[in-house]
Design a protein around this nucleic acid. Structure first.
Lengths: 303, 303
DNA sequence: GCCAGCCATCGAGGATGCCGATGGCTCGTA
DNA sequence: TACGAGCCATCGGCATCCTCGATGGCTGGC
């Protein structure tokens, strides 16, 4: 029994303050919507808890004692602090802080700079920190708390502890250099034809590159030649140099297409790659993180 | 339903702070001597009351959310204010302020200056304000709250709402001027003899003067000549001028006796007049008032 | 001296808090 | 992979506490 009675309820302090102001048990009870006897009991309980008499009961009502006057101010400080607590809880906190977003290089280079720029206008106080990570590294980061959000280029994100929303889908482009022999094909190349070509793809774990690799390897008797790079830029450079083909989300290829460094290859239909925005299910996103989530969603909605 | 839920208990805030510090429901429960389930329920109740999630429940325990971090400080302010309240209640307040003491002129002139002087040494912060009042006016003052204390020269003080302690008794002196014809009596004068004299007495309502008047009027066939004054000083002046006799508590006569302006008259035995120290029963004396009460009691104990 | 207003007390009943047990979940380990 | 330890959420029971209305004592005014 070291300290004070731990169960101190501010309800008693409310009654204390009201009784001090009105000077009447009955009036205080009316104001507090309580029975008069309840006020009597509560004040008695408070006096017992504080170990001192707070009021003199006189014929016309209740008068603060010296101790009562002395303690009233502090009691009101408690109430005021409590009121501030409720007020702080009611209002939203500032949208500020750093949000660490993990995303594969594909998205980092194509979309995220635009998103960050849009966000900066809406919430200048929010700092976004990009962490280039593949899907599995991103998931680990979400679990360990190193990442607040992750953008995943995956068909499905199915983990019990990860919440993921499908926010968009990227069309894929099959690409080669303008001078490449497949550049001017008028009718689509088949998988069998493509399996004879050289491919320069993004690293293992990149979903659309893995998907393409799977398609090529599925061609019977084929021995597809695929070189994987840790950097999209490196793979794309090989392709613009005319060494072979690659596959990229359209957003990552559009620049080079416009500048004539790459051109589309007519080929078999390619699927869209969905983009998922993920966060840890058990961790509530910060306000800043929610702002980022909104900005991401808006970016992909608009195109 | 305008405001916040009025029943906010700091117990929940204690649990909030402890859980935030330990990061574990189980550890917090152990520290707070509660069951783990209780901590769960309390935190849930607090989150509901505040309308926001305070903790992320993760596998290894509980992590503060952004809102939790933001509100923790304010919650601790509430606890700290409450702690101050208990501390303030535990310690005695300062002995300071003004104490209004009512007393008849008799005591005001003889005793109270000494009491005030003694008190000033012990409690320099306490200011005593003297209100010359007769018994009935003093009682009214106690009831109305104008007086904190009253010193009453009465045989008995018997009022349900007034608490009075008999703290001393004043011996009475029967007095005349040295040249008066009763000054040199060797054997005591009787009431019959005294009833022939001129008396200069304090005002109506002065207990010992009234008592003396009663004795004189009780002498069969007597027509006592008594002049009453609103001021003791006035009555005493008449007596020192040799115009007659008076009766006074010894303390009020001693100065004049020592200086030879008055002398004792041998007469019938006179009773002691008790002094009562009174305060309103329903009003708790302030600390300053209690200090005055102590000083008064000590003064009369010492003589 | 009676009446109106005020506070204290009491008993009942309804709400609430706390507890122990149990179950689901995660993580580390054999 | 299966298992056990540790952690939190839920549930039902029990005791406690809170609130209320009724009643009585008291004071002060008419």
């Amino acid at each position: 029994m070291a300290g004070y009675p731990s169960a101190m309820e501010t309800r008693l302090l409310q009654t204390f303050a009201t009784l001090a102001r009105t000077g009447s048990f009955t009036a205080a009870a009316t104001e507090l919507r309580l029975a008069q006897s309840t006020v009597t009991v509560q004040i008695k309980a408070l006096e017992k808890a504080l170990g001192t008499r707070l009021f003199d009961r006189v014929a016309r009502g209740a008068l603060l004692t010296e101790d009562g006057r002395r303690l009233l101010g502090t009691a009101e400080e408690v109430l005021e602090a409590e009121s501030r607590l409720f007020a702080a809880a009611a209002e939203d906190g500032p949208v500020t802080g750093t949000v660490v977003v993990g995303a594969g290089e594909t998205l980092c280079s194509a979309h995220l700079p635009l998103i960050v720029a849009a966000l900066r206008e809406l919430h200048p106080e929010v700092e976004v920190q990009l962490e280039p990570r593949g899907t599995s590294a991103a998931l680990t980061g979400l679990r360990s708390g190193q990442l607040d959000l992750a953008l995943l280029l995956e068909e499905r994100v199915n983990h019990a502890d990860i919440a993921a929303d499908r926010i968009s889908a990227q069309p894929l482009d099959l690409l080669c250099a303008p001078g490449h022999r497949l550049a001017d094909r008028t009718h689509p190349a088949t998988w069998e034809e493509l399996a004879e070509e050289d491919f320069f793809l993004h690293e293992q774990g990149c979903s659309y590159s893995d998907w393409l690799a799977g398609q090529l390897q599925a061609v019977p008797g084929a021995q597809p030649r695929m070189t994987r790079f840790g950097s999209i830029e490196a793979a794309r450079s090989c392709v613009t140099a005319g060494l072979g083909l690659t596959v990229l989300p359209h957003a990552n290829a559009s620049h080079a297409l416009e500048e004539g460094r790459l051109t589309l290859v007519a080929g078999p239909p390619l699927p869209d790659v969905p983009i998922h925005l993920a966060h840890h299910r058990r961790r509530q996103p910060t306000r800043a993180a929610r702002a980022v989530m909104k900005a991401v969603a808006r970016h992909f909605e608009q195109g």
